[in-house]
């Protein structure tokens, strides 16, 4: 019987009790890394530097991958064709972040989104489970647009940084912003 009143093992340390323990050992990891972008992502990043969003196409099943990969994960075949996308897409979901990576409060909240990109061969119908997409920030969007849901499904396009500021990074796109009809 493991009901409410069973006494379980485990010795709880309250608040800063831990920091007063004798025998506490601290260690600072000094791990630094260098990540290589690899082939498919490398070309994708080069494309961003040139103001283009690139995908790859599988020769067997026709799936378009953004971000691109060297292989089709369904066919295990090498992808053989680059596809340039218009860059426009629809907001799949969006949120309002009030905190930084380390939970510090932000002065101005950020809008974060997943964008379903328009690509040949994809219908954009709501029942399509997979799609070429990108994870980025939105600008010209208010928190209330997220809360009310107005922004979901809205058409957006990338706002590129000036060419001289681009480094071959996802941040070469400053953000995505709504396309104003007219």
């Amino acid at each position: 019987m493991v009901g409410k009143d069973v006494k379980l093992p485990g010795t709880y340390l309250k608040g800063d009790e831990m920091y007063k323990l004798p025998g506490l050992v601290e260690h600072r990891p000094e791990a630094k890394y260098e990540f290589a972008s690899g082939q498919a992502q490398g070309r994708f990043l080069q494309g961003l530097k040139e103001g283009k969003i690139l995908g790859v196409k599988c020769p067997r099943c026709g799936r378009v991958y953004v971000p691109p990969r060297m292989y089709c994960e369904y066919c295990m075949a090498p992808t053989t064709e680059w596809v340039e996308l218009s860059g426009e897409g629809e907001v799949h979901t969006a949120v309002v972040s009030y905190i930084s990576t380390f939970r510090a409060r932000l002065e101005k909240p950020e809008i974060i989104a997943v964008i379903r990109l328009y690509a040949p061969g994809y219908t954009g119908k709501p029942d399509e489970y997979e799609f070429p997409g990108i994870f980025h920030k939105l600008c010209n969007v208010e928190p209330d647009d997220v809360v009310s849901g107005r922004i979901i499904g809205a058409r957006v396009r990338p706002r590129w940084r000036p060419p001289e500021e681009r480094r071959g990074s996802v941040t070469d796109i400053e953000c995505f912003e709504p396309v104003v009809e007219g």
Partner: peptide, 13 residues
């Protein structure tokens, strides 16, 4: 590390 971390994400995102 290349496509997501430069945006400064928090796990909760």
């Amino acid at each position: 590390p290349i496509l997501e971390r430069p945006l400064g994400p928090n796990l909760i995102w």
